[in-house]
Deep mutational scan, measured.
Amino acid sequence: CHSECLGNCSQPDDPTKCVACRNFYLDGRCVETCPPPYYHFQDWRCVNFSFCQDLHHKCKNSRRQGCHQYVIHNNKCIPECPSGYTMNSSNLLCTPCLGPCPKVCHLLEGEKTIDSVTSAQELRGCTVINGSLIINIRGGNNLAAELEANLGLIEEISGYLKIRRSYALVSLSFFRKLRLIRGETLEIGNYSFYALDNQNLRQLWDWSKHNLTITQGKLFFHYNPKLCLSEIHKMEEVSGTKGRQERNDIALKTNGDQASCENELLKFSYIRTSFDKILLRWEPYWPPDFRDLLGFMLFYKEAPYQNVTEFDGQDACGSNSWTVVDIDPPLRSNDPKSQNHPGWLMRGLKPWTQYAIFVKTLVTFSDERRTYGAKSDIIYVQTDATNPSVPLDPISVSNSSSQIILKWKPPSDPNGNITHYLVFWERQAEDSELFELDYCLKGLKLPSRTWSPPFESEDSQKHNQSEYEDSAGECCSCPKTDSQILKELEESSFRKTFEDYLHNVVFVPRKT
């Protein structure tokens, strides 16, 4: 048989008469490798580009789960590009990614509803959504962080984005990388972005840091009482949809009607710091009717980097990364020049730590249904340095008659930039024990000054392991946590139920 035959053949030295091919099969003959313009397919066939392209389009058009959109890589027609490569849609070739590779997620039936953290986790790592997304989240724990972890990498949506009755959302900033909504599939009414009845939605994105392009379709905003109209108009300008909307697409009466839409800028007039305090004062603000001013709200939190936005980490279910302080308005003076500047002394802060701070007014709604208010920009203030805590785990070892090696770990709280350490030492008198000992005694162990690591005695271990207080009263049991108490109650309830079950099964009433 021919060298490319495997198993047997019907005619000697003829690659077209093989029972099976050793390498690849091409047009009725066995070959060692697939010549151009053919590609290896499933490690035994040679196919042309049209064959591989037909497989790709067949799966793409069917949208069946589990099928493969075949691509070409290293002269092979394979189910998908290997790690580190992405497909070129024009020629199906796998090309190296520039940075992290995109991950295209194809949605069944063309859309997916995100109504819980669990459903959001199914899209973790996706960068391109081939379909439409509907966000409908009523509640949950730590929602802002969970949504950002699972949806934060999405850069492109081919269909539309719909935010509907998501009472738990305060902001859409968890879509931190969303840059493009194509609108290839539109919501009824030709809408590519749809926001309806979101009672706590206050911000779409921080438009000073976020760009969003909507290729096709219109915007729809109705019944978002805490979303200011200025935020919607800003989205029109940034996304390129200005002029597409009709009169009733953006409701003037049901958007922002319960919001404090600040239209003035508060400026800080005085800032002073110490290692654990920050004193702030800002310019006074009074609405047209000074009785509408209820006070100020001061927001602050630790910020290692200057990239904080107002609604980071917030949701309507209680999660809030900001510390909020309510401040009463100052006494009002008739003389504008003698107006008191409101302020606040922030206490209990960490030394040498940068804080993000902003302040906003708290006002009631005027009778004319106009909203007044003022808010400052987010500023960054760093507390002063102070003395560091003591170095940890000092170790001293003498390696000769004239040297001592000293080692330690950095302090747990540096409280500033540590530039150097101060080492103090003092000579001590020799131990009298060394002169009084009889060095001729056998088995004498000389006193040693070398360091030995501390260890816990058996008594201390027994005390720590004991669940009861000892007789001397030195140790006591740790208080039980809520989960331990709940577990004990469940076990007790189970024992009672099981005992009742045994009584009912074992003891049967005697027939009379």
Rank of each mutant, 00 (worst) to 15 (best):
K103F: 06
V104W: 14
H106M: 11
L107M: 07
L108V: 14
E109L: 06
G110V: 04
G110T: 09
G110Y: 11
K112Y: 04
T113H: 12
T113S: 13
T113P: 09
I114Q: 00
D115N: 05
T118Q: 01
S119R: 04
S119Q: 07
A120W: 04
A120Y: 11
L123D: 01
G125V: 10
G125F: 03
C126W: 00
T127H: 03
V128I: 13
V128Y: 15
V128R: 14
G131E: 01
G131V: 00
L133N: 00
L133F: 04
I134K: 02
G139L: 12
G140Q: 11
G140C: 15
N142D: 11
N142P: 12
E146S: 04
E146F: 07
L147V: 03
A149T: 10
A149Q: 14
L151I: 06
L151S: 01
G152V: 02
G152S: 03
G152A: 01
L153Y: 07
I154R: 00
E155V: 15
E155P: 00
E156Q: 07
E156D: 06
I157M: 06
G159D: 01
G159I: 00
K162T: 01
K162Q: 15
S166F: 05
Y167F: 15
L169H: 08
L169Y: 05
V170T: 10
V170C: 04
F175K: 00
R179I: 12
R179S: 06
R179E: 08
L180R: 09
L180I: 15
L180C: 11
L180K: 11
G183N: 01
E184M: 02
E184F: 13
T185H: 15
L186D: 14
G189Y: 15
G189S: 05
G189V: 15
N190W: 01
N190M: 14
N190K: 15
Y191K: 08
S192Y: 01
F193A: 02
Y194P: 01
Y194H: 10
Y194N: 14
A195S: 09
L196F: 03
Q199N: 09
N200V: 06
L201T: 03
L201F: 11
L204R: 00
S208H: 10
S208A: 14
K209P: 05
K209R: 12
K209Y: 08
H210N: 03
H210A: 06
T213F: 04
T213H: 15
I214F: 14
T215Q: 10
G217N: 04
G217L: 01
L219P: 05
L219S: 07
F220Q: 03
F220S: 13
F220Y: 02
F221T: 05
H222I: 02
Y223W: 09
N224R: 00
N224M: 05
P225S: 05
K226T: 05
L227K: 00
E231M: 08
H233T: 14
H233C: 14
K234R: 13
K234S: 09
M235G: 03
V238L: 13
S239F: 03
S239N: 05
K242G: 12
K242M: 12
G243S: 08
E246C: 03
R247S: 10
N248F: 14
N248G: 08
D249F: 11
I250L: 09
A251Q: 08
L252D: 04
L252W: 11
L252R: 11
L252S: 13
L252Q: 10
K253S: 08
T254G: 12
T254W: 04
T254C: 07
N255V: 03
G256V: 07
D257H: 08
D257E: 07
S260R: 08
C261G: 04
C261E: 09
E262C: 06
E262T: 10
E264Q: 12
E264G: 05
L265P: 12
L265R: 13
L265M: 11
L266Y: 01
L266Q: 02
K267P: 09
K267L: 08
F268R: 00
I271M: 08
R272K: 00
K277L: 07
L279H: 15
L279K: 15
L279F: 08
L280Q: 00
R281C: 02
R281A: 02
E283Q: 00
E283L: 06
W286A: 02
W286R: 10
W286T: 08
P288Y: 00
P288W: 10
F290I: 00
F290T: 05
R291T: 14
L293I: 04
L293M: 11
L293H: 06
L293N: 06
L293K: 05
L294Q: 03
G295H: 13
M297N: 15
M297V: 03
L298W: 01
L298I: 07
Y300P: 00
Y300C: 15
Y300S: 06
Y300W: 04
P304T: 12
N307F: 10
T309M: 02
T309A: 07
T309P: 05
E310H: 13
F311W: 09
D312T: 10
G313R: 10
G313P: 06
G313I: 13
Q314P: 02
Q314K: 04
Q314E: 15
D315L: 05
A316M: 07
C317F: 15
C317Y: 06
C317I: 15
S319F: 13
N320R: 14
N320A: 08
N320S: 07
S321P: 04
W322S: 02
T323Y: 06
V324W: 10
D326L: 09
I327S: 03
D328G: 04
D328E: 15
P329F: 02
P330K: 03
P330G: 05
L331D: 14
S333I: 04
S333L: 04
N334F: 03
N334T: 14
N334M: 09
P336S: 07
K337S: 13
S338V: 12
S338D: 01
S338M: 11
Q339F: 12
Q339T: 08
N340L: 08
N340R: 02
H341V: 07
P342Y: 04
P342G: 10
G343Q: 01
W344M: 04
W344F: 04
W344N: 12
L345F: 09
L345P: 05
M346F: 06
M346L: 11
R347V: 11
G348T: 15
L349Q: 01
K350M: 12
P351C: 07
W352K: 10
W352S: 11
W352P: 00
I357E: 00
F358T: 04
K360R: 11
T361Y: 13
T361A: 12
T361R: 05
L362V: 03
V363A: 12
V363H: 12
D367N: 05
R369A: 03
R369C: 12
R369W: 13
R369P: 06
R370P: 09
T371Y: 15
T371R: 09
T371G: 08
G373V: 03
A374P: 15
K375V: 08
D377K: 08
D377L: 01
I378L: 13
I378T: 11
I378N: 01
T383A: 01
A385W: 04
A385M: 09
P388W: 00
P388N: 01
S389C: 05
V390H: 15
V390R: 14
D393P: 04
P394E: 04
P394W: 15
I395G: 06
V397Y: 14
S398M: 01
S398Y: 08
S398I: 02
S400M: 08
S401P: 04
Q403R: 09
Q403V: 03
Q403H: 13
K407M: 15
P410H: 11
P410R: 07
